[in-house]
Amino acid sequence: MSAEWESIFLSLRLAGLVTVMLLVIATPLAWWLARSRDPLRPVVEALTALPLVLPPTVLGFYLLILLNPQSPIGSFWREWTGGSLTFSFAGLVVASIVYSLPFAVQPLQTAFASVGRGQLEAATSLGAGPLDRFLHIVIPHSIRGYITAAVLSFSHTLGEFGIVLMMGGSIPGETRVVSIALFEAVETLDYDTAHTLAAGLILFAFVTLLAVFALNRRFPVHVR
């Protein structure tokens, strides 16, 4: 397998894994943010949104400090798995989850907040408990939110660069993702490879967005 393909598959694997994990993590977080009247809510909301405004290098720097093998988290990970959380694929997954968190949380939070109280109370009076209501009222109502969250998380992870450079370096098959490979191709004046990677990413992004918008038309917005 050529080096270009290796980096493309690595990027897709990373983005896919991160997207699935983010949807799982963001669902309860977004639900809490959408429904809670806890005074801590704005604090959590601001923390969640931080990656939107910080330069990726800032995040990368602190994650490097937090996750390196000498840190408590890094050493625990090392004892548990034998691997490292820096300059490794596992480390990229953790970093990408932090970095893309707001892109998963915010669409879900908006979708959850738009589920009418009346519908939830109707479901309650019809005998549906909290989990039942979430699975059968909230999630179907929020399908568009889930699609948006998945697409944004996936493409944002696919496109990240600074944080990967700080946290992962450029280890082929481990941390050398498409954006890094593209950067190195340009640095070494290998414009053929750069064109292939860059044009491929543009095409991929366009097809994905097209598919999403086409799909979204099939799910009407439930406005209340």
Binding site: A122, A123, A128, G129, P130, P140
Partner: peptide, 29 residues
Amino acid sequence: PPHKRRIGYVTQHADLFEHLDVRGNLDFA
């Protein structure tokens, strides 16, 4: 808990489930 009280509650807004058709709403109950 409210969902164990077995109350039929109809409000002025009807509050039908928008992602289901009429049959689906009745089946839910």
